Amino acid sequence: MNPLFEASWSRAWPAVSGADADPGLREQLLARYAEPHRAYHTLQHLHECLELFDQARALAQRPEEVELALWFHDAIYDVRASDNEARSAAWAVSALASASTPNDAIMRVESLIMATRHTAAPSDGDETLLVDIDLSILGADAERFDEYDAQIRQEYRHVPGLIYRFKRRGILRSFLERPRIYGTDPLHERFERKARANLQRVTA
């Protein structure tokens, strides 16, 4: 077992759910991230998110809820579907409800996961932090960014090249058009410049 995954799950699930650590649920989640059709939304992505969260934990108001939301945020991933976040959030809601977790905590975790749709501005500090962590790949070193870009293309290998390039360029340019890509000041300072350089390079 990856030490980061073990430590993170053992901390986050009991703190949020109020129940003992559930290794069976953890293994179900890890199995999802290891599905063969994934190239970017994998165990590598989950590890990178949890690793960055460890460094940024002090920025969270309810850190264990953010951490648990990271575990679930890409639990369901089907490139042909448009409701992955909703289905991932529903799984988290069901699991937490089965553990008799208080409704307010369940609703916050659900909202955190849904924030990773990136269709609206985050509504609070924890959502902002989680979204920044999910988007941190945009501000990675050029080599890792290029690997990520290739991984996304692999996930969408069924889409013809011309259509893919047109749509992908539009998505990436939408991030460039934001006044700020990262909402939390420390992650803005760490990733904003590199993210803009990466995005400008691949959308020029």
Rank of each mutant, 00 (worst) to 15 (best):
A12H: 08
H45V: 07
L52K: 08
A19M: 05
W13T: 03
R11T: 09
R11Y: 14
P23M: 09
H45T: 13
A31I: 07
L30D: 07
P23E: 12
Q61W: 03
F53C: 00
W13S: 04
A56W: 10
A15E: 07
D22M: 13
F53R: 00
S17Y: 10
L46W: 01
A15N: 05
Q61Y: 02
A15K: 06
H45S: 14
S8D: 02
D22Q: 13
H41F: 00
R57D: 12
A60Q: 01
E48F: 06
G24P: 00
F53L: 14
Q55V: 14
L25P: 01
R38N: 12
A60F: 04
S10N: 13
A39L: 06
E27V: 02
E27A: 14
A60N: 02
D20H: 06
T42G: 09
P36W: 03
A31V: 07
R38G: 10
L52Q: 11
A12T: 06
D22N: 13
E51V: 07
L25M: 11
S17D: 01
F53K: 01
G18A: 09
T42I: 01
A31H: 12
L46K: 02
R11M: 08
W13A: 08
A15I: 05
L46I: 03
L52C: 01
Y33C: 15
D22W: 11
H47T: 09
P36R: 11
Q44M: 02
V16H: 03
A60L: 02
H41Y: 04
A15H: 02
Q44Y: 00
A12I: 05
L29D: 09
S10M: 12
D22R: 15
L59C: 02
R32T: 14
F53I: 11
A21K: 10
A39R: 09
Q55P: 01
V16M: 03
A34R: 10
Q61S: 12
F53D: 01
P23T: 08
A15T: 05
L46H: 04
E51K: 13
